[in-house]
């Protein structure tokens, strides 16, 4: 474990050097994600210029849920972005072999190799939106709900990471799984809005199968409305744990089935 953190520190230092070298690129990346979020906020604002409530939620409550969804997404984006590269091209181009030749767990190696600072654009937007919404709504933060919120950020991040690990693992069989992963990842769009606007089929899918609803709506609804905490946080934690276990099992099976694409 100590060895892992020592190695991670070395990798992070390398990443920071790279960041200093390519400052313009970092600014571009972070700005891109920021602009993407701003356009969505404009979208929500235009809708709310015409209606007072959406399924019983007012403007700032929707903004709160939206901001909430960006936090676990951003944290995951910051730490595990390299999984995308595995899914898209690292395996296909035959560059995956290097992870197998090093004396460290390949999954940890893949993850620690990249710290994607672009994610700060998403993460900071999320935090700012949550702060603004909290002030406007007068949300009362106590030790209890802050602790639960942090727990939700943690299992939300795990849900994102698990889906990315599973998606990247598929590349170990089929060489390039980026687009499959993209489909699952994109379904997180559903999670940015109250799940009550969807029909029951969509609601069940994003609650139990691709459980993105637990990365934002359910925990946020506890903070806003005091919805059943056992479901919002207990089931959320359990689902995240199960999903991560399955993802790692799949990844390990993939490693055993892996044949290099290189020449």
């Amino acid at each position: 474990m100590m060895r892992f953190f020592r190695l991670y520190k070395t990798f992070v230092v390398q990443q920071l050097k790279q960041l200093m070298e390519y400052r313009v690129d970092f600014l571009t990346g972070a700005t891109s994600f920021l602009v993407g979020q701003i356009t969505n906020i404009v979208f929500i604002s235009i809708i709310f210029s015409q209606i007072p409530h959406l399924q019983g939620f007012d403007y700032y409550e929707i903004i709160f849920i939206y901001g909430f969804s960006l936090v676990p997404k951003g944290i995951d984006h910051l730490f595990t972005d390299n999984l995308w590269k595995v899914a898209w091209f690292i395996v296909r181009k035959g560059n995956f072999d290097k992870y197998l030749t090093r004396p460290i767990n390949p999954l940890l190696h893949v993850i620690m190799e990249t710290l994607q600072f672009d994610a700060l654009g998403e993460l900071l937007t999320g935090i700012v939106l949550m702060i603004i919404a909290s002030i406007k709504l007068g949300i009362n933060y106590r030790f209890g709900n802050v602790a639960l919120m942090l727990l939700a950020f943690a299992f939300g991040t795990v849900i994102y990471a698990a889906i990315k690990i599973a998606g990247a693992a598929l590349a170990l069989w089929i060489k390039s799984s980026g687009s499959i992963l993209q489909v699952f990842y994109m379904s997180s769009d559903f999670a940015k809005y109250p799940v009550t606007i969807y029909n029951s089929a969509v609601r069940n899918i994003i609650t139990y199968i691709v459980p993105f609803a637990f990365t934002a709506y359910y925990p946020a609804s506890y903070i806003l409305r005091g919805n059943d905490p056992w479901f919002c946080f207990g089931v959320g934690t359990a689902i995240a744990a199960v999903l991560l276990t399955l993802a790692i099992l799949l990844w390990n099976r993939g490693l055993r089935a892996y044949e290099s694409a290189g020449s």
């Binding site: 970092f26 990346g29 972070a30 700005t31 891109s32 356009t39 672009d118």
Partner: peptide, 18 residues
Amino acid sequence: WLMNIWGFSILKGSIIKF
């Protein structure tokens, strides 16, 4: 001129979408 074309593509995507 730039290395992070990917970041730029995301930006371009958001701008076009909007």
